[in-house]
Design a protein around this nucleic acid. Structure first.
Length: 113
DNA sequence: ACACTGACCACTG
DNA sequence: CCAGTGGCCAGTG
């Protein structure tokens, strides 16, 4: 992506993640589905890995389908992701977001472009 | 240039 | 119902 300036799947992922409202979270699959490639949920995660280069991308607001903080291990420290979520009033227990469905932000429903 | 892997999810058997 | 596997894009060895 560093060589290509044209929009790719990853760039679309970044744009969607940037639209996640504060205090809300979404899932890899939801983003992939929104982009029309629900089989590419894994790539969304990989995109997050590359998203470290993009400060505007709140990767901590992206969790897996169960609301588990699977990506926390990829942050600066294992507590970074949870701390950032808690700073946004999101409760976490056992690496799982409490009332996940209530804070879940589905781009397919709430972000129509 | 080829093969493998990666923060996942949904479909089979 | 539980376990296994395929699939998608991009990056790295």
């Amino acid at each position: 992506m560093s060589r290509t300036d044209k929009y790719s799947f990853f760039d679309n992922v970044y744009e969607v993640v940037r639209q996640i409202p504060k205090g809300r979270v979404t899932s890899y699959g939801a983003i992939a589905n929104y982009l029309g490639a629900k089989r590419s949920a894994r790539m969304v995660g990989w995109a997050m890995n590359a998203a470290h280069n993009k400060p505007d991308v709140p990767a901590h607001r992206v969790v897996n389908r169960q609301g588990l903080l699977t990506g926390k291990h990829h942050f600066a420290t294992e507590d970074t992701m949870q701390a950032r979520l808690e700073a946004e009033n999101i409760k976490i227990k056992d690496n799982q977001i409490v009332a996940f469905k209530e804070v879940f932000w589905d781009p397919n429903l709430e972000l129509l472009i």
